[in-house]
Write a protein that binds this DNA or RNA. Structure first.
Length: 760
RNA sequence: GGGGCCGUGGUCUAGAUGGUUAUGACGUUGCCUUGACAUGGCAAAGGUCCCCGGUUCAAAUCCGGGCGGCCCCACCA
């Protein structure tokens, strides 16, 4: 017996910060210096938005569990931190905060404002992540807006440009009026809402009319044809005739096309440039005259006639009113509609044709499908999200954005020779640079546009592996070990990363892809401002500790399922953290027995046998990166069997100094601490270092003990519970003596059971 | 319209390859300061495992159909 090295009666959460500080000081997670394979985690670079959702906190904690557990399985893991700093949200933030519009100030000045804001938000991310105990390489964070990173982004652009995989084209595309930029299909979401389907009369000269149904009357000014189905007898006599566009003086022809569904609306539809993708397709197919009546800010231009200057929504209501006045509106009915919106600003998407750069992707789908089969998905079923998206890619990727805070497009335009790319390996701020044309030596202006931010984030697996920076490191690391990410960005980050990596290397980007679900509230509802159910990580950490939050994140749901979270649940997990501490405190009361005794007591053999099963199951879980398995397996064993039954049985021998009991207590505790270390890094580190010295995180995962797993567990538990129950019925204390017979098949544990229950 | 996931006590949840009293948490009730732990321990109450049919000696677990929920995808104006 001795004073337990764990003097405090309770686990103090304030220890977490001290422990983290010492990890930082020792640079515990620096880039491995080994000669062979290095296991690189392609961390999702968080975007500094000023807030951190508790879902992100759980998400990154789980990714940390991947890094920690694989380190403890003997792999040299590098877990870098990246910060995703390019893109629109920061621009909107700055515009709001300073009450300006980006194009109203000098570009240089605007960029500086964005950078300052990003730095501020970034510090908050780092503070939160460190509070969570995340074991990233804190000395070498990369930033996607740094010149070093942008050199690589631009370098890969130039490489693909030179290969002929990037081209410029003017075609109607998704346009976000709020963000004033073209968007890729992957950046579009759909919002369901009610809208009016208006039945409008297109008059013929003879006073008859053809009715068409539309949800977008504001585009009448861009109408260039009416179509009806070829087999639709109702409109046969209209085909080939000219009808007058309501509210406008122009006439358009009635054509036939199978795209018109006789069962929808009136069966006749108008084609306008551009109401939706169908319009885009048919304008092209029928060679109609394009009229672009929408301005980039979402208002109508002169093509809108007297509605010029109005925003589409205003124009719509005004025109409906005018149609009604002129008796050109048959009726309006409410319909349910899926409206495409911008995934960032949630503005309604318009279709606008502007010259943009495109990266070829359709031609690579076949190869990417093959590549997908070479990667292991955790969980397996998430692979379907990727396959589904690839099956639906219908056009090339528009990659240029008419914004400011992004990687400048490294292209220069010669009036005579067109666009050309400079040498890679240098950072080009093209929008303010001029270079001589390589053909005619005339000064060329750089392009003013920037790249879609997915163009830079999608090369993270290449960047961190040292692509075009450190060939030796690249050989040790590529393809990277694992891509962890949320399911919501499969069609963007995952798909684009695979595409870009394949185009540049002809290889898969990752060995493993790990995809997690969302964190939702305790009833499975999405956390949102309007529901008032949002939780933030820092208050939770301060109240219950990072270990409690992390354990909750690991034990609540299987990999890929949504994780339910509430303060109640986190508090519940905190109890288990305390339990671990109490068990360690108990074991610490005895001198550490490091020498294995020649023979082990049957009770000790039994618990080690049970522990063997737990070790095997937990490690299988870690290999599959599913922390639900180790978290719950180890917790149940530790609490329900090891603490509740084994410790009580072995206690008397422990106090008597029995070496078999003491050795077993220590070895079992060590195994438990190691198995839990990736999930609850703080309490395990503290107790391990106090009892055994050093860090639990540099240990390797436990291996099975040399004992047979017995079938005694259920019988032992039943016997103990029976006696506890009897004592309760009799109203006597647990320490009181009782007469009872030990069943024959528990004879091997007779002495421990007799001592535990005070059998007479 | 297509696809995915799912439907287990008041609430939430576990349950490869079908097998005796269906797991755990939170909550509820009762007892207990037992030489780690009262922010604890022990015990107890509480379930038609969504419904119908099938396969089987045996189904929460497999198959078919239905009902319901969540999510993703999709150009029906």
């Amino acid at each position: 017996m001795r004073e337990s090295p764990l003097a405090d009666k309770r686990w103090k959460k304030s220890k977490e910060a001290e422990i983290f500080a010492s990890w930082l000081k020792e640079k515990s997670w620096a880039k491995p210096t080994v000669k062979n394979r290095i296991w690189v985690v392609d961390t999702p670079p968080p975007y500094p938005s000023g807030k951190i959702h508790i879902g992100s906190a759980i998400h990154y904690s789980q990714i940390d569990m991947i890094a920690r557990s694989w380190r403890m399985m003997g792999k040299p893991v590098w877990f870098p931190l990246g910060i995703d700093r390019n893109g629109l949200p920061i621009e909107s933030r700055v515009e709001k905060d300073h009450k300006i519009k980006a194009h109203q100030v000098e570009r240089e000045e605007f960029l500086e404002m964005c950078k300052k804001k990003l730095d501020e938000y970034e510090a908050y991310i780092i503070q939160t992540f460190q509070g969570l105990g995340i074991s990233m390489d804190w000395d070498a964070p990369y930033r996607t807006d740094s010149p070093e990173y942008r050199i690589i982004t631009q370098g890969t652009f130039i490489e693909l440009w030179n290969k002929g995989l990037i081209y410029e084209a003017k075609r109607p595309n998704n346009w976000c009026p709020g963000c004033r930029t073209t968007l890729a299909d992957a950046e579009i979401e759909y919002r369901s809402g009610k809208t009016k389907l208006n039945y409008i009369k297109f008059m013929l000269d003879d006073g008859t009319y053809i009715p068409i149904a539309t949800t977008r009357p504001e585009l009448l000014g861009a109408c260039d044809a009416i179509i009806v189905h070829p087999d639709d007898d109702r409109f046969k006599h209209f085909v080939g005739k000219k009808v007058k566009i309501p509210l406008y003086d122009r006439k358009v022809e009635v054509l036939t096309h199978p795209e018109a569904n006789p069962d929808f609306g009136t069966g006749a539809m108008m084609l306008c440039s551009y109401g939706d993708q169908t319009d885009v397709k048919l304008f092209n197919e029928l060679k109609l005259t394009e009229r672009l009546i929408l301005e980039p800010n979402g208002t109508l231009n002169d093509g809108g006639g007297k509605y010029a200057g109005m925003h589409t929504k205003k124009a719509r209501s005004q025109m409906i009113e005018d149609l009604e006045k002129n008796k050109l509106l048959e009726k309006s009915e409410e319909v349910e509609q899926q409206v495409p919106v911008c995934w960032r600003s949630k503005d309604d998407i318009e279709f606008v044709a502007l010259p943009e750069f495109y990266l070829k992707q359709q031609a690579f789908i076949k190869d990417l499908r093959k590549i997908s089969d070479e990667m292991e998905f955790h969980p397996q079923f998430m692979k379907q999200l990727l396959i589904d998206w690839m099956d639906r890619v219908s056009q090339d990727w528009p990659i240029s954005r008419r914004r400011f805070y992004g990687t400048p497009i490294p292209l220069f335009k010669c009036k005579e020779h067109g666009f050309w790319a400079p040498e890679s390996g240098k950072y080009y701020e093209s929008w303010k640079e001029e270079l001589p044309c390589p053909k005619c030596n005339k000064k060329c202006k750089g392009d003013h546009r920037v790249l879609d931010t997915w163009m830079d984030s999608s090369i993270s697996p290449l960047y961190i592996c040292g692509y075009k920076q450190d060939d030796a490191f690249f050989k040790q690391t590529f393809p990277s070990f694992v891509r962890p990410q949320g399911k919501d960005i499969v069609r963007t980050w995952l798909f684009y990363s695979l595409l870009r990596t394949f185009q540049l290397t002809k290889k898969r980007a990752f060995e493993h892809v790990w995809i997690s679900g969302h964190v939702v509230d305790e009833h499975g509802k999405k956390m949102s401002k309007s529901l008032g159910n949002i939780l933030y990580p820092m208050p939770m950490i301060e109240k219950y500790g990072a270990d409690a939050l992390r354990f909750q994140g690991a034990s609540e749901a299987k990999l890929g399922s949504d994780i339910r979270l509430s303060e109640e649940r986190v508090r519940g997990s905190g109890k288990f953290i305390q339990k671990i501490y109490n068990i360690a405190r108990f074991v610490g009361m005895f001198e550490v027995a490091t020498k294995k005794p020649a023979t082990l007591h049957n009770t000790d053999k039994w618990i080690l046998g049970e522990l063997n099963t737990v070790i095997k199951k937990a490690i299988t879980g870690y290999e599959d990166m599913d922390f639900f398995v180790p978290a719950n397996t180890v917790k149940n064993f530790t609490w329900e069997i090891f603490a509740a039954h084994y410790i009580e049985m072995a206690k008397t021998r422990a106090y008597a100094g029995d070496q078999s009991a003491l050795w077993t207590l220590n070895e079992a505790l060590k195994a438990i601490l190691k198995l839990l270390a990736p999930i609850t890094p703080f309490v395990t580190e503290y107790t391990w270092s106090k009892l055994y010295g050093g860090s639990v995180h540099t240990q390797v995962m436990p291996v099975a003990f040399d004992v047979q797993t017995t079938k005694d567990t259920q019988k032992l538990l039943a016997f103990n519970e029976k006696l506890w129950s009897i004592k309760q019925e009799k109203g006597i204390s647990l320490k009181d003596g009782i007469k009872a017979k030990i069943p024959g098949d528990l004879e091997a544990f007779a002495d421990d059971l007799a001592a535990m229950h005070h059998l007479e």
